[in-house]
Design a protein around this nucleic acid. Structure first.
Lengths: 179, 179
DNA sequence: TTGCAATAGTTTCGACTCGCTACTAATATG
DNA sequence: CATATTAGTAGCGAGTCGAAACTATTGCAA
């Protein structure tokens, strides 16, 4: 077994072992991933298609997942004014609490802070490679985008032609193209 | 979001993006994980309970998964002679081929070989920590175990009291305790 | 303008996952 | 020898998953 395969196997078990934490309170890994994404994505990136693209699944599946999250009161939908086809989902208060409190804080064992940072960077680059390999969008954060423009404290998106709130600079955008 | 959470989020998306490869030929991530485990576990570690422990799921779930793999002819069962309760599963020829050929060889992008090795080591240590955190068994390989005894080319397991084949030294064992 | 084509989302289907509880059979233990 | 423990399974209900079919809206081009 070569290194790439070994890494993939480790990744697989790790996410499975992590997932066993979420399996308690009527919550599963897929739903947790959706909530996590919605908590970090900007207002232009929260449609079923976007979440599906991010997680590498289909619109049909995501439609189902979002429906079940709506039923649980964790997520709420808002139809777009301009394009009546598209819908933007967002966390409810309860959903926000679930994301913040519900996460069992995962340890890093005997890894030093420097090693953890190193691991984070390596994972980021691996993810970037595998995402590109499959033609997926990068889903990076707004401020690292070629369309992001900053003038003092004012921020602007050249692509969408809108002004941005300060907190939006760190959110995930489906249109993001790394600068 | 702290480093541990960030790492968990990266891990999650990575395994999800990887999983989208397996979703083609009537095969899913859970089944792929079972086949992968069975291909690497020794003859003492291939019962439903063992696979379930390894993947952090339940015996009931694993029983179902194994049933569907049997139906596809990828896996076959053998009842134990000594303990008539226990069953050991193993890959069929077709199952072996599926593991070997079916894996879309995953890239490592622009990571150097040294960086890939570093990533592998860090992941291994993180996994070890999270496994210990939850009281799971380590499922390490035979030769790194306190019960493993080597005398020239002869290998022996002190715990189970049996002689071991050379190739078994590198297989996963559910009884393994790191030396 | 009208007539597609593309897009966003949903629904339905069948196979499967998943935790849970209840169950059977075999083995241990006192 | 009675009872506890262990290994595995069956059934339940909610949900995941891909695929295909379907609706509604928007874009585009003749």
């Amino acid at each position: 077994m070569n290194t790439a395969d070994t890494i993939t196997a480790l990744l697989n078990r790790l996410s499975r072992v992590d997932a066993s934490d979420w399996r308690s309170p009527g919550m599963n890994a897929a739903q947790a991933a959706v909530l996590d994404y919605l908590s970090r994505a900007n207002r232009f990136s929260r449609s079923p298609s976007h979440v599906a693209d991010y997680l590498g699944t289909t619109r049909g599946t995501m439609s189902q997942s979002l429906k079940s999250l709506v039923q649980k009161g964790l997520v709420s939908e808002k139809r777009s004014e301009t394009d009546k086809r598209s819908i933007s989902y967002h966390l409810t208060d309860k959903g926000g609490r679930t994301v913040r409190d519900g996460r069992p804080n995962p340890g890093i064992g005997d890894l030093s802070l420097a090693e953890a940072r190193m691991l984070e960077q390596l994972l980021r680059r691996l993810l970037q490679a595998r995402v590109a390999e499959r033609g997926f969008r990068p889903f990076g954060i707004c401020k690292d985008c070629i369309h992001h423009e900053q003038d003092g404290s004012k921020r602007y998106c050249r692509l969408l032609g809108v002004n941005l709130q300060p907190e939006e600079a760190l959110q995930i955008c489906h249109e993001q193209e790394p600068a």
